[in-house]
Design a protein around this nucleic acid. Structure first.
Length: 440
RNA sequence: GGGGAGAUUCCAGAGUGGCCAAAUGGGGCAGACUGUAAAUCUGUUGGUGUACGCCUUCGGAGGUUCGAAUCCUCCUCUCCCCA
């Protein structure tokens, strides 16, 4: 399904049933009556909207991307909508506070970046069901406010809009007219796509249900047409914490925010229970294959077969085979039986590519030749520790290693002889935090 | 408008003149164990110093005292009750 560059190769499988596919993968939350029949009847066009709040999607959006991928694999036509217009308004769904608006320039930049990311997952050249990317700014930019409230707003009552959860939840704390009108703007998107692209189905997370239904309602009232909705459950982790966050924040698809190594590590660290769900949601592996994997995993959970497969598939899909390979190798060295001998045996380019995602700092060679105390090196020179005391505590607690050798003397003097390849020092703070110091 | 309670180190919350860098719990970090897991146990959680110490910190500004998180005055903010 994925070639050497990580690009998805389209496979036409008309026998696949989209709804069934979502159902067994646990990606189906809710569906409008008649949706399944519509999908069986004809090749359908569906869309999902992506929010341009930043210039990269994160793994939360990956669920929606996968839904589009499945949709296309089932022979239907997916449209990814980037919200150049809706992004200027701000979706109140699931938000407890009024959102800050982004400037037009920032939005444009974000849109271009997100579009590029989406292109990696869908096939844009496969005939009838080629994917498309549209920007709702294109049909909103020339529409006047008066036109909109006359032609569109007239069809939907305030009562109807107020009844939505996304609005109700904010009635006490306050909400601007701008955000209130969001559902109508998104509803119009659906209407526009229905009219111009014959798009009859909107997909999305379950928090989008209210917005989607406003769209189907608008289509019914303005055109007398039938349109449908399918939502997917919002991802939950078994321990109750939010999916897709690490201590450092969001896990992004863009390698400049989350390196492939960190990305790989994120999936590898998935809890057992979560991995069973994620592998269905984030990979294209077939049911039998997944069932076999789960079974094997349960026989020997400590091998973490599921996590490894999960991390491999997703890293390869989002980044590339090569990135996966490097992340895997780096993990082997850093967490496996890597010793300082292993480290020094690596050739320099491999060594560097392994530590691509590891924070780096620099020190001059002349400092090292004179010899520098461990504490000075790790606080003043590199800022790896914020105070001398913290550094000492780590050493005393056995939590500090250099080049995979545990350090237990805080007064240690570091000189050139510690350098790997006469150039690098690999600092390990605790079990999982690595820093690379370059001597220049 | 009247009356009362409070603001403490990441959070919650003790402390009511010297024994307070400040109990306890949570969280964080680390160590052991393990599966780069969960649970558990241990250590650590203002800065500096090897250390008795020293420096900065208990809403803000002043004051009393040999000595203040603790007492006094003013200010700011939060909560509660009555109108």
């Amino acid at each position: 399904m994925v070639d050497s560059k990580g690009k998805l190769i389209f496979v036409k499988i008309y026998t696949m049933n989209f709804v069934e596919e979502l159902r067994w993968r646990g990606m189906l939350q809710d569906m409008m009556p008649g949706t399944e029949e519509e999908l069986k009847k004809e090749n359908t066009t569906a869309y999902i909207g992506f929010d341009p709040t930043s210039d990269s999607l994160h793994i939360g959006s990956l669920v929606q991307i996968m839904i589009l991928v499945h949709f296309q694999r089932c022979g239907h036509k997916p449209i990814a909508l980037v919200g150049g217009a809706t992004g200027m308004v701000g979706d109140p769904s699931g938000k407890s506070k009024e959102r800050n608006l982004l400037s037009k320039e920032v939005l444009d930049h974000n849109l271009a970046c997100i579009q590029k990311q989406l292109e990696k997952f869908l096939n844009f050249d496969c005939g009838l069901n080629s994917a498309e990317i549209v920007n709702n700014y294109d049909w909103f930019k020339d529409m006047s406010f008066l036109d909109f409230i006359r032609d569109t707003g007239k069809h939907i009552t305030i009562n109807y809009m107020l009844a939505k959860d996304s609005v109700k939840n904010r009635l006490n704390t306050g909400m601007s007219f701008t955000e209130f009108s969001y559902q109508l703007v998104q509803g119009y998107d659906f209407y526009w796509l229905y009219k111009h692209k014959n798009c009859k189905l909107q997909l999305g997370g379950s928090d989008q249900w209210g917005n989607i239904v406003t769209g189907t309602e608008l289509i019914r009232r303005m055109e007398g047409g039938d349109a449908f909705a399918i939502t997917s459950p919002l991802l939950q982790k078994t321990d109750g914490t939010k999916f897709g966050k690490t201590e450092e924040g969001n896990v992004w698809l863009d390698p400049k925010y989350t390196s492939p190594y960190k990305f790989y590590q994120f999936w590898l660290n998935t809890a057992d229970e979560d991995a069973k769900n994620y592998i269905k949601i984030f990979t294209l592996l077939q049911q039998e294959e997944i069932e076999a994997l789960v079974e094997e995993h349960e026989k020997a959970p400590h091998v973490r077969l599921l996590q490894k497969k999960l991390a491999e598939e997703i890293t390869t899909m989002v980044h590339s085979q090569e990135d996966y390979h490097n992340a895997f190798e780096a993990s082997q060295i850093l967490f496996g039986k890597g010793t300082s001998e292993n480290l020094s045996k690596l050739d320099e380019s491999t060594f560097l590519s392994l530590f691509e995602g590891v924070p780096q700092s620099e020190i001059t060679k002349s400092d090292l030749e004179k010899g520098i105390s461990l504490i000075d090196l790790l606080t003043e020179k590199t800022g790896i520790f914020s105070s001398n005391g913290e550094c000492k505590r780590f050493v005393q607690g056995g939590g500090l290693s250099i080049n995979k050798n545990k350090i237990n003397d805080a007064a240690l003097l570091i000189n050139s002889s510690f350098l790997l390849k006469n150039k690098y020092l690999l600092i390990q703070k605790g079990r999982k935090n690595y820093f690379l110091v370059l001597a220049i």
